[in-house]
Nucleic acid binder design. Sequence first.
DNA 1: ATATTTGTACTGACCAGTCAGTTTATCAAC
DNA 2: GTTGATAAACTGACTGGTCAGTACAAATAT
Lengths: 191, 191
Amino acid sequence: MSRDRILDAAASVFAGNGYHRTRMDDIALAAGVAKGTLYYHFPGKADLFRALATEGLEMLLRETKTALDANVPFVEQLRLVLDRTISLYMEYDKLAQIFFNELTSGLDAEVRSDIEAVQARFQAFLAELLQEGNQYGSLKVPYPALTAAGLIGLLDGMCRLSLRYPEKHTAEQVKESMLALLIGGLAVERK
Amino acid sequence: MSRDRILDAAASVFAGNGYHRTRMDDIALAAGVAKGTLYYHFPGKADLFRALATEGLEMLLRETKTALDANVPFVEQLRLVLDRTISLYMEYDKLAQIFFNELTSGLDAEVRSDIEAVQARFQAFLAELLQEGNQYGSLKVPYPALTAAGLIGLLDGMCRLSLRYPEKHTAEQVKESMLALLIGGLAVERK
DNA sequence: ATATTTGTACTGACCAGTCAGTTTATCAAC
DNA sequence: GTTGATAAACTGACTGGTCAGTACAAATAT
C-alpha cells in the first residue's frame, strides 16, 4: 500500500526539514508517488502530519507502557520507563524532536489539538505513575501532573543536547544524569 | 523611535500567532507604521525576528544574572536563579514559549544559529553555576552541561502546563515542584 | 539638506490543493 | 480464460491565493 510509503517518506522529510519547510511535492518525490496520490490518501498536509504524529506518539506510549514491570519497586519502574523513552527518543531522533517541539507552533488549531491530546495522554501516564508512587510511599511528588510535564521537558532538553553533540554526551549519560536527578536531586546533602 | 514600536508590536504579534502565521502587514498594522518602515529598519522578516529573539534572550540572561547573590549558599543561588527565570517566563509567557520552542523549527539556518548562540549562553551560564556548585561541594552533578539543558526543558515543560491551565497550577507551585525535585529528587528515601 | 516615514499599489515566487484523465485491480458473466 | 464493466488507485499539469519584499513620490520631522 502506498499509504504506508507516504507515511514513511513524510516521516523522514518532516523530520529533516520541519513542518513548514516541507513541501507536499517533497513528500511525493520521496515516496515515489505522484502528488495527487497524497491527496487521495490524506485530506491535506496538516492531516498527513497529524496521522504521522498521532501514530508515532501512540507507538511511544505503547512501547513505554510495555516497559513497565509491576513486580518491581516504583523507583525501578520509573527507571524502566525513562530508560525506554530515552532509547526511543534517540532512535527516532529527528521525529521525536518534531513530536516534542514542532507541535507547539504554526499548526492550525484543530490539527494541533488532536496531537496535543495524545501528548497529554503520555503526560497523564507519567503523572499516574508518579501518583501511584506517592500512594505506595515510594515517592513524594507534590504535583504529579506538573512534575510529569517537567519530566518530559527535562528528557527532551537532555536528549536534544546529546543528539546535537553526540561526541560529548551519550544516551547512557543522559539516563544516568536524569536518574540521578530524579532519585536524589542535585544537592549533596539532605537538609 | 519607531524601531522600538516595531519591536514591541512584533513581540506581541509573533507571540500571539507564531512566526509563520505572522504577516509583515500585521506587524506594521500593530505598530501603527507603514510597511515600508519595517524594511527601512530591518532587512526582512527573519532579521526582525532575530533581533527580537536575541534582544529578549539577552534580557533574560541579564535579568537572571542579577538575581545572583554571591553571599549565599549555592543551593540558595540556584533557587534565586530559577525563581527569577520562572517569574520572567510567566510574565512574558507567549514570548517565552517562542524563545524556547519555536526556535527549533522552520527558521532559515542562518537566523536560527544566531538565536541558538544566545540560548547556548544561557545554558552555559546554568552549567557554570552547577559546575561551581560541584567545586564548592554543595552539588553533585555528573554532567553539568547536560543537566543545564535538562533544567531548561524542565522549566519550560512545567511553565507551559501552568500557563495552559492557570487555575490548576500556579507559578508558586512550579517553583516549589522544581526546587523540591532539584534539591531532593522525587524519592522519599535516600538509598 | 538629510533622515525618516507614509501610503498605496505592484511584483513575483512559492506551494497547497484541484481535477480531468489514465492505469490497475476486482469480479462477475458468458 | 476471455470479455467487459465498475470501482479503486494513481498521475501530473495547472490554478489560485497568499505574502515577502519592492517602488516611489510625497510628506514630515531633525
